[in-house]
């Protein structure tokens, strides 16, 4: 069973604020998938989440670095971005699964590039464009 919540944001700042608010419910061991097109607000959301858990590091896009680690908060936040992956094998070859099962919270942009990964994601957040700045953000929580 899954439960869904739908949010609407009118600006990148509002998306960031939503990330901050929802991060209050994160707990160590959570794996969260972020799915949506380029510019849909995934990194903005993570910036808010990092702020929410008190991480001190600056949140930047991990598209090229593949993973950024933000420390100094309640727990470590692993920010993965699978944008550059062409197939699931690359995910495992690059050793990225170690972050998924690490202590802390793992948020994964473009998690849908590795379908097998989705079953490990307790929360799936989908971002869609509804206007130039407006976004619809759907949060699906899988029952434990």
């Amino acid at each position: 069973m899954t439960a869904s919540e739908v949010y609407e944001t009118a600006s990148p700042e509002a998306t960031e604020a939503l990330g901050e608010a929802l991060s209050k419910g994160f707990k160590s061991g959570d794996v969260i998938a972020l799915i949506g097109e380029l510019g849909a607000g995934k990194t903005c959301f993570v910036r808010g989440a990092a702020k929410g858990i008190g991480a001190v590091s600056r949140v930047k896009s991990p598209s090229f670095t593949l993973v950024n680690i933000y420390e100094g908060g309640k727990f470590a936040l692993y920010h993965l971005d699978l944008y550059r992956l062409s197939n699931a094998d690359e995910f495992y070859n690059a050793g990225l699964e170690e972050y998924v099962y690490a202590r802390g919270v793992c948020v994964i942009e473009w998690a849908d590039k590795v379908p097998a990964l989705l079953k490990d994601c307790g929360v799936v957040i989908r971002f869609t464009h509804s206007g130039e700045k407006e976004r619809v953000i759907t949060v699906e929580r899988r029952d434990e």
């Binding site: 593949l66 944008y83 550059r84 992956l85 062409s86 094998d89 690359e90 070859n93």
Partner: peptide, 10 residues
């Protein structure tokens, strides 16, 4: 691949 595809495998 005609897109941004990295060589990421260590």
């Amino acid at each position: 691949y005609g897109g941004i595809v990295p060589e990421l495998a260590s």
